[in-house]
C-alpha cells in the first residue's frame, strides 16, 4: 500500500487567524523565540499498490480541485510518503 502526502498552506497574503492564536499562546509556555506561526493542512492519500507518477499527477489534481481553495490556499507539497520518510 502506497501513501501520498499533500500539504496545503494559507496564502502568504491571507492573514491566518488560527496561526495568530497559536503564536499568542506559545509565550505563555515559555516559548518566546517563535515570532510567527502559520497553520496549514496535511493530507495522507492511500492507494493500493505503489505510488506511481500517474498517482502523483492524480493527487496533484485532487489537491487543486478539492483539498485546497486556490483563492485562499497554496498546495505546497505533493509527495510519495515512502520517499519522504527516507529523505
Amino acid at each position: 500500500m502506497g501513501r501520498v502526502v499533500v500539504e496545503v498552506m494559507p496564502k502568504p497574503e491571507i492573514l491566518d487567524p488560527q496561526g495568530k492564536a497559536v503564536v499568542g499562546a506559545l509565550p505563555r509556555l515559555g516559548f518566546t523565540q517563535f515570532t510567527g506561526v502559520r497553520q496549514g493542512k496535511r493530507f495522507e492519500l492511500e492507494v493500493d499498490g505503489d505510488v506511481t507518477p500517474e498517482v502523483l499527477v492524480a493527487a496533484q489534481q485532487a489537491a487543486e480541485m478539492l483539498l485546497s481553495n486556490p483563492i485562499i490556499e497554496d498546495v505546497v507539497r505533493v509527495a510519495d510518503a515512502a520517499v519522504e520518510s527516507v529523505a
Binding site: 494559507p10 491571507i14 492573514l15 487567524p17 488560527q18 492564536a21 481553495n69 483563492i71 485562499i72
Partner: peptide, 10 residues
C-alpha cells in the same frame, strides 16, 4: 468571487 476564512477575532 472570493472566499471566507475564520473571523479575524476567532
Amino acid at each position: 468571487s472570493g472566499s471566507m476564512v475564520k473571523n479575524d477575532h476567532l
